[in-house]
């Protein structure tokens, strides 16, 4: 495909998506729209997780820490001033009188995560293997502890509420497209090859002059930005949340989407999100309890998660690199590139 054709194709694709996003609520019922919004947000989070975990091979389980920071930062900034005065009376005055809208607060959430990721990543990205995972889990716990204890900013363990629920389907889809385009541009450019070289063989990568730390750190920081953005979207979708919303359950959900879809693949992330979401929605109905003929099945809280966990383990045993592994589905033209032709 020539550049012009590709651009045209991408534009048409985007136009179709935009139209779909805008008119979908008219066609689909509320439940479907909500599922789609959550899927888009999760896709932002999982693909940005894939950047660090799949492409550079530094397996962080602290991603949700950034999601939490993004949600809280954007929440504090986007809270209407009256609500701010009543919900967070102890905010420092410069914050209490500051209000910015949805988009700026989302970007601010992402940027705060960038700064945090620099600070955290500079030491942590020196580690690898099990240790980086344990340490990033430690980061998640630290974030959780701070959120619970920084009452003045977060209402502590209580619900943080009153955020305008502005994450509509077009917004979520729009941010997903931005995320994927940026990530695809990076991953399938020379930088991306550096990421994979670092993942495959640290020593060989160093031998050809790649600096491991900046390579890993850049992926970690960029991933954190989109995690913050996703956190803001999630906060503006839910309207209210607490530190508990961004902890282990959510971590496992995102990690399972990543792993089931395929860690080294952006389209794999999407596949993972879709598969796990469909499965969860299906099982959620089962969990509520039902009647099968004369038999009444009582609600089984936790059953959906157990099934997901078992499926996850099956993947670990039989297909540890996920459904797609390092491959991309040939939807690459949507992103302006033919990703599938590139392999590690």
């Amino acid at each position: 495909m020539s550049g012009a054709v590709r651009l045209l194709a991408a534009l048409i694709g985007l136009a179709v998506l935009a139209a779909a996003a805008i008119y979908a609520p008219a066609v689909l019922d509320d439940y479907m729209v909500r599922v789609l919004i959550v899927m888009c947000i999760n896709a932002v989070l999982v693909s940005s997780l894939a950047l660090g975990n799949g492409f550079t091979g530094v397996f962080s389980i602290g991603h949700v820490g950034f999601v939490a920071v993004g949600a809280y930062v954007s929440g504090i900034l986007a809270l209407p001033l009256e609500a701010k005065a009543s919900l967070l009376p102890d905010l420092p005055s410069w914050l209490a009188s500051w209000y910015i809208g949805f988009l700026p607060s989302t970007i601010a959430g992402g940027l705060v995560c960038v700064a945090l990721a620099f600070a955290v990543g500079a030491p942590l990205m020196r580690l690898s293997g099990h240790f980086v995972s344990v340490a990033t889990l430690g980061f998640l716990v630290i974030v959780n502890v701070v959120l619970i204890n920084a009452d003045d900013f977060t209402r502590g363990a209580r619900t943080f509420t009153g955020i305008p629920m502005q994450t509509t389907l077009p917004w979520a889809l729009g941010w997903l497209v931005v995320t994927l385009v940026v990530l695809a541009r990076i991953v399938y450019a020379p930088t991306g090859r550096a990421y994979r070289a670092v993942r495959e063989d640290t020593i060989a990568a160093q031998a050809i002059g790649l600096d491991v730390l900046p390579t890993r750190l850049s992926a970690f920081v960029l991933g954190a930005f989109f995690a913050g953005v996703g956190g803001s979207l999630y906060g503006h979708y839910l309207g209210s949340f607490s530190p508990k919303s961004f902890y282990l359950q959510y971590t496992f959900l995102l990690v399972s989407m990543l792993v089931i879809g395929g860690m080294g693949s952006l389209t794999g992330s999407i596949v993972g999100v879709i598969a796990v979401t469909l499965l969860s929605e299906l099982l959620r109905n089962l969990e509520r309890g039902m009647d099968i003929g004369p038999i009444t099945v009582p609600p089984l809280y936790g059953a959906a998660q157990i099934v997901l966990g078992i499926i996850f383990i099956f993947f670990m045993i039989f297909r540890p690199s996920g459904a797609l592994g390092d491959r991309e589905l040939r939807l690459g033209w949507l992103l302006g590139r033919r990703n599938s032709s590139e392999r590690t």
Binding site: S133, F252, V255, Q305, F312
Partner: peptide, 24 residues
Amino acid sequence: GAADVTLLLTSLAVTYILENLGIL
């Protein structure tokens, strides 16, 4: 004998299963 990450993720899944079994 699989990669470190595979072992670690498997144990993470086991945690998830056991804790939800506890909830169940």
